[in-house]
Design a protein around this nucleic acid. Structure first.
Length: 131
DNA sequence: GTCTAATTCAAAT
DNA sequence: ATTTGAATTAGAC
């Protein structure tokens, strides 16, 4: 994952996958985590192409967040109120795009079930503390 | 042309 | 808003 790109592709579809765009958005934020609405905003601000067909690509984006283990949902802290949870990148997925292409990774990032279960337990515990 | 990641539609939660 | 699945599209080799 390289720099938060500033170049514009006009109304043409930018050469990035939703995974890449989402990673850029999260990467660009000070805390390296963003709520869904801010991810949407990052993408549509930079790429005019994504100011249309919002229902389609936003649904696809959401599908990616849930489906790919590289995105981790962090419960909101009570002192930072708002709507959805925060999304961040799994530490082990930071080099996800080590290979050149931002369109397609060589392999999908998947956690071992044991690691995934452990992570989910930790996050559940965190959610309890915040309540 | 094969392999499989990415996208889309969409139901269920 | 989030998770899941089936079907389809498409990038890398």
């Amino acid at each position: 994952m390289p720099r938060p790109c500033r170049e514009s592709y006009g109304d043409q579809k930018p050469p990035y996958s939703y995974i890449s765009l989402t990673a850029m958005a999260i990467w660009s934020s000070p805390d390296k985590m963003l709520p869904l609405a801010d991810i949407y905003r990052f993408i549509s601000d930079r790429f005019p192409y994504y100011r249309r067909n919002t229902q389609r690509w936003q649904n696809s984006l959401r599908h990616n967040l849930s489906f790919n283990d590289c995105f981790v949902k962090i419960p909101r802290r009570p002192d930072r109120p708002g709507k959805g949870a925060y999304w961040t990148l799994h530490p082990a997925a930071l080099d996800m795009f080590e290979n050149g292409s931002l369109l397609r990774r060589r392999k999908r990032f998947k956690l071992l079930k044991s690691d995934k279960d452990r992570l989910e337990n930790e996050l559940a515990a965190l959610a309890n503390l915040n309540r």
